[in-house]
Simulated assay, not measured.
Amino acid sequence: MKNLKTTNALFGCMALLAIACTTKTAVDGPDGPADPNEGYQLTTTLESNASMPGQNYSAINTFMKTYGFDYSEHPNCSGGYGGHPDGVHCDTELDPDLNKYVFRFNIHIDPVIDGDRCSSGTVDRQRNEMKSATNNTTWAKIQGNWDEWQVLEWKFKLPQGFQPTSSFCHIHQLKAQDGPNNGSPLITITPRANSNGSNKRIQIIHSVDGASTGKGTIVDNIPLADFENEWVQVREEMHYTHNGSYSCKIIRIRDGKVLIDFKDENIDLWRSGASYIRNKYGIYRSLAGGKLNQDPVGQSPLLKNESLWLTDVKVYEKNTNPNPGQAHD
């Protein structure tokens, strides 16, 4: 009887071990960690190629539209408020580290102070961004629609000595396209510095309708030095509801160092009255207290020519909204 009990106990332990092993295999897979995008559908991929170096902004826009993005928010405009029609604000370069063609976004103080699409209403800022196409019929699959889950992946690089302002200097935005509260972005990745240019850091900021559900700066004091002249891989995951989820992981490609690993599973991730959330990339920065129509323009030493390199933009979604484009409170 004692041997029978011992045998049964042994079989029980083996069964529990088998269950544990099976569970691990299902989570991690036989060849390593599970694909974090399992269950998602890849809806688009954007990267440049050898045909794009030297192309003007119109050709870049046409190219990006093929993949569901557009390049319409740039300073290549004519007007008295920061128009710089002859400037090269986006180009393609062959990157020696990645050994592939990548986009380079530029914002200028010299020889011309770039503005915000020649707008007379926003003379205190500069904008040079690409974004998901503002068409939620053809390109609903790359927008964040109500109750959908979305993953955004991309690589970017900031130059050595990149100098943020003490005010906003966004390099990525999640922003409602429409609705009564679409002025401020929902989520931003924001380099920032003190007013004297010190304490250069990366932040992630959350804002919702100006309501108490906005959490403000949710990631702060990530040293900008860890990003300078380094390619990094970004993965964002969102569940677009008022009781939503947001995560962001940024890994430095050269050595695999995790620079940011943030997750919040109870965050308001919608703008009331919006029909969808678009994703944006580039440089959108304040003139740090200055205006295009004043002299001097902006705050020194925080303003100088800056660049951002971008490639491998991928969009995934699951739980697809069957009626995208309908406004939701």
Rank of each mutant, 00 (worst) to 15 (best):
T217R: 12
V219H: 07
P223D: 09
P223V: 01
L224G: 09
D226E: 14
E230Y: 02
E230F: 08
V232Y: 14
E236D: 14
E237C: 03
E237L: 02
N243R: 04
N243L: 09
N243F: 07
G244Q: 07
S245K: 15
Y246N: 09
Y246T: 03
S247A: 09
I250W: 13
I250L: 05
I251T: 15
I251L: 08
R252F: 06
I253T: 13
I253V: 15
R254G: 06
G256E: 01
V258L: 01
I260Q: 04
D261P: 10
D261Q: 10
L269N: 14
R271W: 00
R271A: 01
A274E: 02
S275A: 11
Y276K: 04
I277S: 05
R278N: 07
R278Q: 12
R278I: 01
N279H: 11
I283Q: 06
Y284H: 10
Y284N: 12
R285H: 14
S286Y: 06
L287I: 05
A288G: 10
A288T: 04
G289W: 04
G290M: 13
G290V: 01
G290C: 03
L292N: 08
N293G: 05
N293K: 12
D295F: 11
G298P: 15
S300M: 10
L302F: 08
L303F: 13
L308D: 01
W309R: 04
T311K: 07
K314C: 05
V315F: 12
V315D: 02
K318F: 06
P322H: 09
P322E: 02
P324L: 05
G325V: 04
